Each structure stands twice: as C-alpha cells, then as structure tokens.
Computed example of a mutant assay.
Amino acid sequence: MDDLTEDLVASGDDPIWRQIQSEAREEAEREPLLVSFLYAAVLRHATLEEGLSVILANKLQSAELPAILLRDLIYDALADDGSIRNSIRADLLAARTRDPAARGYAQPFLYYKGFHSLQTHRVAHALWSRERHALAAHLQNRVSEVFGVDIHPAARIGQGVIIDHATGVVIGETAVVEDHVSLLHEVTLGGTGKERGDRHPKVRRGVLIGAGAKILGNIEVGMGAKVAAGSVVLRDVPPHTTVAGVPARVVGQCTVAEPALDMDATFPFSVDAGAGI
C-alpha cells in the first residue's frame, strides 16, 4: 500500500472497504440468494476488520473454539495491530491487480482461500509473538484442515503477498517471505530434513514462485527472481534470475524488476545453456 492509502485508513477513511461494500451491494441486487450472506459478511459492518473477523471465524470454527470466541480473538488481533491492517489491504490490492480472475475487491475478500489463509496466519503470528503458542498452533491446524494451507505461525510474511489458489502450500517455521511476493499452489518453503534452527528459505521482494515449486533449506531466493513451476531449488538463487528444473539451475535473466507483479510464469526454453546454482 502507498502512504496515502495508509493515512486514509488511519484517519478512518478506508477506500478499499468502501469499494468492497459497494461491490457487495451490487452483487446482492444481482443474486438474491446471497443477500443474507453479503449482509452478514460485509454490509452490516463499519470496518473491514469486523467483516473479515466474521468470515474467518465462520470458516475456521470448531467444537473446541466456536465462531463467537474465534471472531473476538481475530478482531482483537486485527484491531490492535496497524501493520496487520495495512498488510490486509496490501494483500487485497495484490489479489485484485495480479489475479486475472479477480473481479473487484469483494471477490478475493469473500472467497479466496489464499487470502483467508494468509490473514489467519497474520493473526497466528501475532499470537506466536506474544508467546501464545498453543493458540497459534490451533489456528495453524485449522487453516491446514479447512484450506489445505500449512504456514507455521513463526514464519515471517511481508505485505502485498498473494497465494494464488493456495491448495497444498507449505511454509516452514523459519521461512521469510518479503513484500510483493507471488506464490502459486503446491509451493513448499521447507527444510531438507531434521536439521534444527534456521532451516527454511528466505524469499526476497518481488519473487514469483510457480506452481509445485519446492524450495528447501536455509537458502535465499534473491530479489526479483523467478522460480519455474515444478522446480526443486536447493541452492541460493541470484537476484533477477529465472531458475528451472530438478535440481533447479539458472535458465535466464528476468526482464522486469519484480516478476511477482506481472505473474508471467513462463521462462526461456534454452535450458541447456543455463548455469548451475
């Protein structure tokens, strides 16, 4: 998000929430069967945080943690942390601008499990940071069961991140994902075995990671790099390069500063000319 948008949110003028409510009203007129849902999730709420808390609580509720308690837990975490509020809106902007299937802001807000998984992780990470480890682990478990996305609460994830389709995504405890990163489904940011300590990948700003890519170990994927679908990355990836293969190796240079913003998962076919990494 830019500074102007952050200032508007801080002052109580939230253009993204106004847009979501406008889109929800239009959708309610087109589809009467969704009127009650749209009212409960969007139209009755004064703020984005209130609506998101209801959506996540209804999806993640369990016998152990019913929706009414979960809603309050999530809302308190969102309301107390300005960085989370800014991250939510940056993630919505990423989904709106990078996913060609997104029709406005309301669609990802209401229906995209990648977005929902990421925002629940932000709550779990806040709990983990306050040493409420058991509750954070409970949220991680529920997200894994409901959405098929497993993100350790200690993992650090920046703003403007999109997890497209999301199914099968795994992000380990010591992983770092910086701002403006795009990940597709079945991506793993994992370890290589039973090593202890800092053992997961560090993904720098603007990186695009294709579907099914596995990045393993305490390695760095440099700023503005691209990892092709199905690749297995075991060594550092230089900034602004494209890597592909099993094991992955450099197959070309990226033509844009932040491939994550373009979402172009193609890469050069002259793999034989690539340099190993």
Rank of each mutant, 00 (worst) to 15 (best):
His125Ala: 09
Ala95Asn: 13
Arg156His: 06
Ala124Trp: 04
Arg96Met: 06
Gly210Arg: 12
Val149Cys: 14
Arg204Asn: 03
Gln119Glu: 12
Cys254Pro: 01
Asp99Val: 05
Tyr111Leu: 14
Gly168Arg: 08
Val143Glu: 14
Pro201Ala: 09
Leu118Lys: 02
Ile151Cys: 12
Val177Trp: 15
Ile209Gln: 14
Glu50Ser: 06
Trp128Tyr: 10
Gly197Trp: 07
Val187His: 13
Gly197Gln: 09
Asp72Trp: 04
Leu234Met: 12
Val271Ala: 13
Gln19Ser: 15
Ala79Pro: 02
Asp76Pro: 04
Gln119Ser: 06
Leu33Ile: 11
Val227Ile: 15
Ala94Cys: 07
Asp72Tyr: 04
Phe109Leu: 09
Ile209Lys: 13
Gly245Tyr: 12
Glu173Arg: 13
Arg156Lys: 10
Val161Arg: 08
Gly274Leu: 04
Lys194Pro: 00
Ala63Tyr: 02
Glu178Phe: 04
Ile219Trp: 12
Lys214Thr: 05
Arg156Trp: 01
His180Trp: 04
Gly276Gln: 09
Pro239Ala: 03
Pro100Thr: 01
Ala57Glu: 00
Arg30Met: 07
Leu78Glu: 05
Gly230His: 03
Ala28Ser: 15
Ile219Leu: 13
Thr242His: 07
Pro201Asn: 10
Leu93Phe: 08
Ser36Glu: 15
His133Gly: 08
Leu38His: 07
Gly212His: 05
Asp164Pro: 03
Ile171Glu: 11
Val42Ala: 15
Ala213Pro: 12
Val256Ser: 15
Gly114Ser: 05
Leu110Val: 03
Leu208Cys: 10
Ser129Gln: 13
Val246Gln: 12
Leu52Ile: 01
Asp99Pro: 08
Leu135Asp: 10
Gln19Ile: 09
His165Gln: 07
Asp91Ile: 10
Asp164His: 06
Gly222Tyr: 02
Gly193Asp: 12
Ile20Ser: 14
Val149Pro: 15
